[in-house]
């Protein structure tokens, strides 16, 4: 399970880096062709929006893998360790429920409904772009199960003490 997680981490990391790098190039290109060449692009803004959605969703999956989503844990930290484990298990189950219902099931339904809906400006349909929802959902489900097992077996702390404050 660990080896699989490491491989998944690495793939997701490189996907995110690539998406982000293309994003920077795409928007720079948009400004350049409009302001310098006076030839506005018809697709750069649409492409940027989709790259960004994929980056956000895959990055979010990766953050579930790192247990890095913003949480308020001051109350939990004061609990006895046994109770902390119980609470942490409930939290992981809550993540599992939300992700599998919304991102995976709901995601596949949206993909189905929009599969052959065409997208102006880009040579792709809307449906495949929505695949980011179920794919990131399935990855997150794996990560959540991974943490669930490790919390129950005591391989990992109930409260993530290394969580860095993330804020805009």
């Amino acid at each position: 399970m660990n080896a699989f997680k490491n491989a998944l981490d690495r793939i997701l990391t490189w996907v995110c880096v690539a998406l982000f790098a293309v994003l920077v190039v795409d928007v720079s290109y948009q400004v350049f062709v409009r302001q310098v060449l006076n030839q506005p692009s018809g697709w750069s803004e649409v492409l940027a929006t989709y790259l960004f959605i994929w980056l956000g969703l895959f990055g979010s999956a990766l953050m579930f893998g790192e247990r890095g989503h913003i949480a308020v844990d001051f109350a939990v930290r004061k609990l006895p360790e046994k109770v902390q484990i119980v609470v942490a298990v409930i939290v992981q189950l809550a993540i599992l429920t939300f992700i599998s219902l919304v991102l995976v099931w709901g995601g596949f339904r949206v993909v189905g409904l929009s599969w052959d809906q065409n997208l102006p400006g880009l040579p792709v349909n809307v449906g495949p772009l929505y695949l980011a929802l179920p794919i990131s959902g399935i990855v997150t489900v794996f990560y959540t199960l991974y943490h669930l097992v490790r919390i129950v077996t005591g391989a990992e702390r109930a409260v993530n003490l290394d969580a860095e404050p993330e804020l805009l």
Binding site: R34, N38, Q39, P40, G42, W43, E45, V46, P120, G121
Partner: peptide, 27 residues
């Protein structure tokens, strides 16, 4: 030489080009 905001589609950009301007899609 005028940049005119058009709705986001190649057809609209093409239309504005034929009309003499430069169609620029933007939210």
């Amino acid at each position: 030489g005028m940049k005119i905001r058009v709705m986001q589609s190649d057809t609209n950009i093409e239309m504005m080009k034929l009309m003499g301007g430069t169609g620029t899609p933007m939210g």
